[in-house]
């Protein structure tokens, strides 16, 4: 990639080549660099799309100071995998539901992608997706977290996520009364 910068002609060629590059380089808060498909980044992240369109992409690595390297690696991995995946028929037609829900079920590879993450990595990825305006990745990660909550009692959910119960006994009783229909087991 080294170019002789002394020659005007070579410089021109370099500029053209970079404008034509099909990847962008992103830099994590801890200074690590990651290459990501430009097309996928622009399609999946409203923030990156804005930066690409606005020309604020740095060829030496666009600074994303809010995102650590582990989360950014996952973001980039997701974008690159997405670039290579073919939308499945399952995304278009839904079998059981009436298809009115705005949320589309994660695809098999997306499921596997989030399943392998630790709690910490998953939550860091949610924050990164939120920051970068990545609607689909946010949906997929939020879906995973909701799966972790499903079928559990409030006590069990608190245990899984270390949520501190700051209610008094009286307040908790008031909520159970107010939402009795939700607590009543049919």
């Amino acid at each position: 990639m080294e170019v002789d910068k002394g020659k005007g002609e070579a410089e021109e060629t370099r500029k053209v080549a970079e404008a034509d590059r099909d990847t962008v380089t992103l830099k994590s808060s801890d200074g690590k660099l990651f290459e990501v498909s430009k097309e996928a980044a622009a399609r999946l992240s409203t923030v990156l799309a804005g930066m690409i369109a606005g020309g604020s992409i740095d060829d030496n690595g666009t600074d994303l100071k809010q995102i650590g390297s582990e989360a950014l690696e996952n973001v980039v991995d997701y974008c690159n995998k997405h670039a290579n995946s073919i939308p499945s028929a399952a995304l278009i037609s839904s079998s059981i539901s009436f298809n009115t829900a705005p949320f589309k079920e994660p695809e098999e590879w997306e499921r596997k992608f989030v399943d392998r993450l630790s709690h910490d990595a998953l939550f860091d990825l949610v924050e990164a997706a939120n920051f970068l305006g990545m609607e689909r990745l946010l949906d997929v990660t939020c879906h995973k977290i909701s799966e972790m909550m499903k079928g559990k009692s409030p006590d069990q959910i608190r245990e899984v996520f270390n949520i501190k119960n700051d209610y008094t006994k009286e307040e908790l009783e008031e909520i159970r009364q107010e939402l009795a229909w939700a607590f009543y087991d049919d």
């Binding site: 909701s146 909550m149 079928g151 908790l172």
Partner: peptide
């Protein structure tokens, strides 16, 4: 996580479970 992300997560739960999250904290 910010409130709006948490409420998106809650809205993916079946209705009774979603309402029961009120008891978490």
């Amino acid at each position: 996580l910010p409130d709006d992300v948490l409420s998106s997560i809650v809205s993916l739960l079946p209705i009774k479970e979603a309402a029961r999250t009120a008891a978490l904290s």
